[in-house]
């Protein structure tokens, strides 16, 4: 398949909100084709902004975002849509249409690049092979029997899987996941992360995932980027990170809240 593998690159990227709040500050990052990377760090560190930059839905205030070495800023709107089509995102709030059936929510993943008539046909009279593909993907994420269920009738964990299925149905080159396990119980969380890692490994997808859960991040992702206050504190293979690195990541947060027992501070070089 042409162009199935893709790389992402950030060069000296800063993002300012409202002209002053600095969400990201001079970030450099390269994620190669098929690489699997986790973003960790305290809330407000800029993980969501980073993922939105990578998915082409957030413009950097300065610096460049590159998809397969093309600067996103140089793209036309049509080309930008084409890039976005190749990036599947699983959003923190899932972002599904609650009163549509699961099938249609998943089908909506492939709207990109179609004409209005073509997309109307896809959504209203889906071709059998597309329905089969949706069923296959739902089977992969474990909810094949919910194909025709209304999405708002599903449990939180099942909806999570619908969101994953929609991103996969897009046939993306890159899979982005923003806190994909923030709304499910620990057992489910583990399953979901495992699923995402497994799928991207098998299909050779580039995977970027932000995670609160350090344990899961260290277990499943071969490379971790630690973010704090919009700056990358570390960016290393997971096996070369130790507890001290993670302490440093959360250091500031703990120092600020004085009523928490002091944690020994470590100097990071």
């Amino acid at each position: 398949m042409k162009g199935r593998r893709a790389s992402l690159e950030l060069e000296e990227v800063s993002v300012l909100f409202g002209g002053q709040t600095r969400a990201l500050n001079g970030l450099n990052l390269r994620v190669g084709p098929g690489e699997r990377v986790g973003f960790v760090g305290p809330s407000g560190a800029g993980k969501t902004t980073l993922l939105r930059l990578l998915s082409g839905t957030q413009r950097p205030t300065s610096g460049a975002v590159r998809f397969n070495s093309q600067d996103i800023k140089q793209l036309s709107l049509g080309q930008l849509r084409e890039v976005r089509r190749r990036i599947g995102t699983i959003h923190q709030d899932l972002s599904l249409v609650p009163n549509l059936r699961v099938l249609h929510n998943v089908l909506a993943g492939r709207l990109g690049g179609r004409s209005i008539l073509g997309s109307a046909r896809l959504m209203l009279f889906p071709p059998p092979q597309d329905v089969e593909r949706v069923h296959e993907i739902l089977e992969m994420v474990g909810i094949a029997d919910k194909l025709y269920e209304r999405t708002d009738r599903l449990s939180g964990g099942q909806r999570q899987r619908v969101a994953v299925a929609r991103a996969l149905f897009q046939e993306p080159s890159v899979l982005l996941a923003d806190e994909p396990v923030s709304s499910v119980d620990p057992a489910r969380a583990r399953e979901t992360v495992e699923l995402l890692v497994d799928i991207s490994q098998r299909a050779g997808l580039t995977l970027c995932m932000s995670l609160h859960n350090l344990e899961l991040a260290r277990e499943f992702l071969p490379r971790l980027v630690g973010l704090r206050d919009g700056v990358a504190i570390f960016d290393r293979p997971t096996d070369r990170l130790d507890d001290r690195d993670f302490y440093s990541l959360y250091e500031l947060e703990n120092r600020e809240s004085t009523d928490v027992a002091p944690i020994p501070r470590f100097r990071v070089v």
Binding site: P128, V131, E132, H135, Y148, E149
Partner: peptide, 15 residues
């Protein structure tokens, strides 16, 4: 069998 399964699900869809 997938087609059969889908048809079955379609027949049972809540409406």
């Amino acid at each position: 069998s997938r087609q059969v399964e889908i048809r079955e699900l379609y027949r049972q869809r809540p409406r």
